[in-house]
Design a protein around this nucleic acid. Structure first.
Length: 281
DNA sequence: ATGACTCGCTGGGCGAGA
């Protein structure tokens, strides 16, 4: 299975690039973030014509997540246990949920397409929302893996956290002043290790940005940041055979500000792996 | 060139992105 995650920044604007990438790169499962539309606005046809099923969770023009998969998806969920909500002037336990999480099972692999809240600024209520959201995700994930330690589980998407100083090439993002690099955010990211998950791309690709701001020549200057990740359970991490960050997708006409991150998985019983030799008796 | 921000909603600016 070839699994990809991509913050597409409006699927209606970028559906052609998105489907062309999926087909060209032989992607089996594509988790998307920031689709910025409701299900009735989603461009299903180009995906279906390319052989993909699509599950969509979008409530309005903000956020929105989706998964395209060549194989059928089951056990669709649009929130994880304990996921907090948020709305301006409406913080608290009954705040409305946003469209930031979509879970689906494909060939026994549990995939969550995640768009972690931005945080906006260190003194904004959105920042506390971000930390609570991440803590609830960690708690829910830890509970699921405690119940099923051998589950191949992938949390993929835009985490809106820069885990290491070397992941930040943008001089506008400064420790002590900016979101994404604060100690509480980094602690929330590394807490997933305590829940039994690891960044499965990092060992294969120690460096590389996944996002460049549209402004001020950030891409030509290579002032990017690494904020898109694939976190895998032990069973998933053990299946990883390769990884790639598709920097070229930031070039050309109407790019997203993020690029795709791809992981190759060699799963037991995965009949679609063409790198497995056929054995004849 | 990898190039000076881009979405969606709206019908003119604005919230949001990070």
């Amino acid at each position: 299975m070839r699994l990809a995650t991509w913050n597409v920044n409006s699927i209606r604007t970028r559906v052609r690039r998105t489907v062309e990438f999926a087909v060209r790169e032989n992607i089996d499962v594509l988790a998307m973030q920031e689709i910025k539309c409701k299900p009735e606005q989603f461009p299903y046809a180009p995906f279906e014509e390319a052989g993909y099923h699509v599950e969509v969770h979008g409530l309005n023009q903000w956020n929105g997540v989706a998964i395209a998969s060549r194989e059928p998806m089951t056990d669709i969920e649009t929130a994880f246990a304990g996921m907090p909500g948020f709305a301006k002037g409406h913080e608290g336990p009954d705040a409305p949920l946003e469209a930031r999480a979509l879970g689906a099972t494909i060939n026994g692999v549990r995939v969550w397409s995640l768009y972690v809240p931005n945080g906006r600024s260190l003194d904004d209520p959105h920042y506390q929302y971000k930390l609570h959201w991440l803590e609830a995700l960690r708690t829910a994930t830890q509970a699921q893996l405690a119940a099923d330690p051998d589950l191949p589980l992938a949390l993929v998407g835009d985490f809106n956290i820069i885990p290491f100083d070397d992941d930040n090439g943008d001089p506008a993002i400064v420790k002590g002043r900016s979101t994404h690099v604060s100690e509480p955010e980094r602690a929330a990211f590394f807490a997933f290790e305590g829940a039994g998950l690891t960044d499965v791309v990092r060992p294969l690709l120690p460096t590389g940005y996944t996002y460049w701001d549209y402004q001020q020549l950030k891409f030509p200057r290579n002032e990017g940041i690494r904020i898109d990740f694939v976190l895998g359970s032990r069973a998933l991490a053990d299946a990883v055979t390769g990884a790639s960050i598709h920097r070229d997708e930031r070039k050309g006409e109407q790019p997203s500000d993020h690029v795709p991150v791809v992981v190759d998985l060699d799963l037991r019983g995965d009949e679609d792996d063409d790198d497995m030799p056929m054995i004849f008796a």
